[in-house]
Amino acid sequence: MAKFLNTSATNYFLEELIKNASDRLVLISPFLKLNDRIKELLQDKNRLKIDVRIVYGKNELHPDEISWLRDLTYIRTSFCKNLHAKCYLNEESCIITSLNLYEFSQINNNEMGIALSRADDSDLYREAYEEAQRIIRISDEVRMSLEKVVSEETSSAGAEREDITVEDKLTSSKLAQKLGISTQDLLEKLVAVGYLVPKDGKHYITDSGKAAGGEFRMGKRFGSYFLWPNSLNLD
């Protein structure tokens, strides 16, 4: 049976939900700034190679969050435009709540939530799980990076701010939106035509990519990203 949660209960059940995940974990929150306890639990899930998906809805991730996330192989992070839902679930339980996965909210705000289980609330759990999967599908996966440029010849692509444009150039995510495809599909196309080359889980711009007008940029707040001509030819 579903349980009502106040602020302290929501925080407790959230920690237990993360701790008990043995197969998958989905964390959906517009705002993302993790406290030390949540980070500790997620690092343990990463060591155990648990599939973790974090979906957030605000562009401005703090550099500390980017730096921490980029080193966790089994935690994938996605950006969902217009996200307002807060939902946390593993393979057996789910929390739907007003609580953001945000340190300030967990300490200072008055929150409410509902906890439900797959065993006792199978229909509710299934509907919440399916909606969480839909949100993941419409989200753009973000590659986290704060690395410095090692040389002018090879540069790594990282997290991209959605609204960056320079003259007639677009970020990979903006160009993907224009073409009606996901950012990941665009990156695969850029690799296929020889504009990028993948290495060690990152992408590096090639001489052909530069000749086509591609640029690597390092932002102070959002890490590294690529810019491409608005009319880039991918044939």
Results as ranks from 00 to 15, higher is better:
Q177T: 04
I18L: 08
G57Y: 05
G180V: 08
R126I: 11
P63Y: 12
L89S: 12
G194M: 10
V26T: 15
D44S: 11
L83C: 10
Q43H: 12
I205K: 05
A115D: 00
D71A: 09
A115P: 02
A157L: 15
I96W: 03
S78C: 14
A212H: 02
L124G: 05
K189M: 14
S156Q: 07
L187Q: 15
D140T: 14
L14S: 06
R137W: 00
W228I: 09
S8E: 15
A212L: 11
C87K: 07
S67P: 01
R118L: 05
K178C: 10
K199A: 15
A119T: 14
N109W: 03
C80N: 15
I114W: 04
R76G: 08
L27P: 07
S67V: 05
F13K: 12
F216N: 02
V26M: 13
E65P: 15
K45V: 04
V197C: 12
E147W: 01
M144A: 02
T77A: 07
R53E: 06
G219S: 09
S139D: 08
Y56Q: 03
L42W: 08
L227D: 01
N100H: 11
K148R: 12
T10L: 09
D44H: 10
G158Y: 09
E152L: 11
F13E: 14
K220N: 08
K86I: 03
S224W: 07
L72M: 14
K19M: 01
D207W: 00
Y129C: 02
K220L: 06
I18T: 04
F31Q: 13
R53Q: 11
Y88H: 09
I66R: 10
A85I: 10
L72C: 09
R118P: 00
G201S: 11
D140F: 11
F216D: 00
Y74D: 13
Y129F: 15
I66M: 05
N46E: 07
T73L: 05
S93Q: 15
R137P: 01
C94W: 05
W228E: 07
G223K: 06
F13C: 06
L170E: 11
K210T: 06
Q133I: 12
G158K: 07
G113E: 10
L27T: 01
S151L: 08
E15Y: 07
W228C: 02
L179N: 08
L5N: 11
I95F: 08
G194P: 03
E16W: 05
I205T: 06
I66E: 03
V193G: 00
N90K: 09
G113I: 02
V142W: 04
Q184P: 01
Q43K: 13
D120H: 08
F104T: 12
E127H: 02
I38D: 02
F222V: 14
F222L: 07
N20Y: 10
A21F: 13
A115F: 13
K199S: 15
Y195Q: 01
S122H: 14
A132N: 01
P198I: 08
V52A: 06
G113C: 06
Y129Q: 05
W68T: 03
S182Q: 03
L186P: 07
A157R: 15
H84R: 09
L14M: 09
A21K: 14
E111F: 03
K3W: 10
Y129S: 13
L227T: 04
L83V: 05
E60F: 04
F226W: 04
G113F: 04
L14V: 06
A212G: 09
L5R: 09
T154Y: 15
C80Q: 14
N35E: 13
C87W: 04
I181Q: 08
L187W: 03
R161K: 05
G113A: 10
